[in-house]
Design a protein around this nucleic acid. Structure first.
Length: 417
RNA sequence: GUGGGUGUAGCUCAGUAGGUUAGAGCGCCAGGUUGUGGCCCUGGAGGUCGCGGAUUCGAGUUCCGUCACUCACCCCA
């Protein structure tokens, strides 16, 4: 273990080999799917003005109040490490006039929240998110959900389930809150301590409480939609209809609450049973964000990639890495190291992966290293080969070795690569 | 922010009622084969016992603090 000096700070971790390979593969697969739906990547800064988040996420939310890494630059400007990806993208869109009015953008990027770490919750974590800019449209919402299902499918992750709900139009929010408060106040005695607090701070969370007593109370409450306008109910129905048409399985869950203030209409969450307490793999919804004097509307989602990873691990779907041709060049005699390095370069320039030992170790050591690295071929070149102008080519799988000339060597290896 | 569990070699872990040079397996390095990997045998390197303090003749072992990991609450992807 050693000293703290070599550990990253709390809740953050190094992403290094060999695990990084699985990340690269996951991301590569995701990009293919996203491009197929017409999404293009956007990379916004990790650091933004604090106000970008305060205004969009909601300055009373926990994320803004106590989970953000807030700092000042040398000019005393208040900045924050992004706790989520949507705000930055919307800031970008708002600053580009008509250009991205119906933009489809995605990001794969680190996010930061200074929370107490636990399973599925790091302080620096990675999200894959997508945003479809534009006014409310049930088909866009449904397609966005379909795209997430598609991502999970291509990753080989099964067993996730979709919960769907609506927050209604902005005008509905107050009515919903007031409606539930009025119904719950007389029943406060049956609620847990947290829920009595939540009644005032965030009533909808009461619907989500895990406590036995609270669930008893909640199950007799009317659905959220009963406090909403006819238009809001119709919008949800439309989304459901499209999802049904696309044969996407989902569960309508009136208890589903999303944490950020900017959501309106459709909200959803994908959970996976392998995950433990933090079981949301992805969350999304339709939103409207005020950026300066503009309001940007759209629909989007964010997936927690660490969570996707652990869900994949639980399913034993670890990739084995692609074999491909790997040549290990064994040198006998230090005086040949330079010439052999030149050969290695030649092979690499021709698209053949080639590794070699550069410090002049014993042949046994070099062979061991080749085996460990998963080399498919070993090329041996020592004094006698150099003298005759030939190469010993050994196939590792069957141990067969033969003497070849340079043109033959190139041809055989290039064919395999 | 609150609570539980954990912290001994690169990794997984043993370390008995506090007692002298802290162990194993795996991995790593080397030798057994004057130029040949995977198996086997032999040897070797590698440890501020998370960190700091206290008690004691003596602490990996007890106590306090601290840092980190981990799980849960809160909150959320």
């Amino acid at each position: 273990m050693g000293s703290d000096d070599f550990q990253p700070i709390q809740g953050m971790s190094d992403l290094a080999p060999p695990a990084i390979r699985r990340w690269q593969k996951l991301e590569a697969q995701a990009r293919i799917v996203l491009h197929r739906y017409g999404y293009e990547e956007i990379r916004t800064p990790v650091l933004e003005k604090l106000s970008v988040f305060e205004r969009s996420i909601g300055d009373t939310t926990d994320i803004v109040q106590k989970e953000m890494y807030v700092l000042e630059d040398r000019g005393g400007r208040k900045l924050a490490l992004r706790p989520e990806g949507t705000a930055g993208v919307m800031r970008f869109v708002a600053g580009h006039g008509q250009d991205f009015q119906d933009g489809r953008l995605y990001y794969i990027a680190p996010m930061f929240r200074c929370e107490r770490p636990q399973a599925g919750r790091k302080r620096q974590f990675h999200q894959l998110g997508a945003e479809a800019i534009g006014t409310p449209n049930a088909r866009v919402d449904a397609e966005m959900i379909a795209m997430q299902v598609h991502l999970l499918h291509d990753w080989g992750l099964e067993g996730a389930s979709i919960r769907l709900n609506t927050r209604g139009e902005p005008a509905d929010h107050a009515a919903v809150q007031q409606g539930f408060r009025d119904l719950l106040r007389p029943l406060a005695g049956r609620l847990c301590e947290d829920c009595r607090r939540r009644m005032e701070t965030n009533v909808l969370r009461v619907l989500d409480c895990k406590q036995e007593g609270c669930r008893e109370v909640v199950k007799d409450l009317p659905p959220v939609t009963s406090f909403m306008s006819e238009a809001s109910r119709a919008y949800l129905k439309d989304v459901c209809a499209v999802l049904d048409k696309l044969e996407i399985a989902y569960v309508l869950d009136p208890g589903l609450v999303r944490g950020l203030d900017y959501y309106r209409h459709t909200v959803w969450e994908l959970t996976h049973p392998a995950l433990g307490a933090q079981d949301a793999i992805s969350g999304g919804g339709r939103y409207g964000l005020k950026m300066g004097n503009r309001e940007i509307e759209g629909v989007g989602f964010a997936m927690g990639l660490e969570r996707v990873m652990t869900a994949l691990e639980s399913r034993h779907l670890d990739d084995t890495g692609e074999p491909g041709t790997l040549v290990w060049l064994v040198t006998l005699g230090d005086e040949l190291l330079d010439e052999n390095l030149e050969l290695a370069q030649t092979l690499r320039m021709r698209g053949i992966a080639c590794r070699m030992d550069l410090v002049g170790r014993s042949m046994k050591a070099q062979m061991r290293a080749a085996g460990r690295a998963g080399a498919t071929h070993v090329v041996i070149r020592g004094a006698s080969e150099a003298e005759k102008g030939v190469y010993q080519l050994k196939t590792m799988a069957d141990g067969v070795q033969r003497e070849v000339t340079l043109p033959d060597l190139m041809e055989i290896l290039a064919a395999g690569a």
